[in-house]
Amino acid sequence: MAKTLVFLEHHENAIQKGSLGVLAKAAQLGGEVAGVVIGAGVRELAAGAGAFGAATVFAADDAALSAPLPQPRVDVLAKLVRDEGFDTVLFAQSVLAADIAAGLAVRLEAGLNWDLVDLSGDGVGKRPALADSVLVDVGWSSDVRLAIFRAGTFDAVETGGSAEVKDAVVELEDFSTRAEMVEQAHAEEQGPSIEDADVIVAGGRGLGEPEKFALAEELAKALGGAVAATRAVVDAGWYPYSAQVGQTGKTVSPKLYVALGISGAIQHKVGMQGANTIVAINKDPNAPIFEFSDLGVVGDLHEIVPKLVELVRARRS
């Protein structure tokens, strides 16, 4: 039976939803499941994780761990894996988690598979490749298996249990503490960048004129997402190139992509086809975008979007 450790990333005194989702998945796969929270003053947080599927949660609590830097966390996790005999360590994708997992893989000489969207009980991971055009089955041949799951793959499930909190030993290598946090990030007011956004609202020529980008901006704000643009409107000067999604712009794979007045030519498609859910509003029923959207709406976006913005705001409050 597997003995699984899930890295529970936290930020501003809350465990990240993605980590809780991975914890729920681990619980579902069975075997012994433990979580670990690493930082300063995290014992309470660790206790709360019991409600999401962990029987045991380790807390590595030390002032030296207060900054969210990867290398000290590798030290803590490696010791924990060796001391407790975990054979599987799972992470939810994040900048920090990816750095930790790679360092940990070397420390433990363990195989690491990343960008997984699923994992089976018999140790087969599923991983999209080549702009999601292929799904690869991946495995491990090492004793300890490390895996990083794509952001937002699993939902957190509140099972309502409670966890036993144990202290994890904190023994840091000398090189692990050489990098120091001078100033930590503040909460961003302007919303996520296109690359990181879970939600993107993109505008195309169907918006009609540059001023109408306000519709995309309002919807993005209501949904907590970022605004993107097609090449055509960037060419026409309606929106900056930094927002361009497509073959000659950015490639994004958010959870939700809302395409307003976008025809869906392949040059645009290759930049966003990896999105989990695609909603398109276009008044042309033959627009190619309808061939690859999950919900296609044939209609006038100038009427639909303002209403949708109101409804979303109402629901969120």
């Binding site: 060419d235 361009q244 073959q247 000659t248 712009g249 392949i266 040059q267």
Partner: peptide, 9 residues
């Protein structure tokens, strides 16, 4: 697209 064209805009 099938010509491999990805010219900088």
């Amino acid at each position: 697209f099938a010509s491999g064209n990805r010219t900088r805009d």
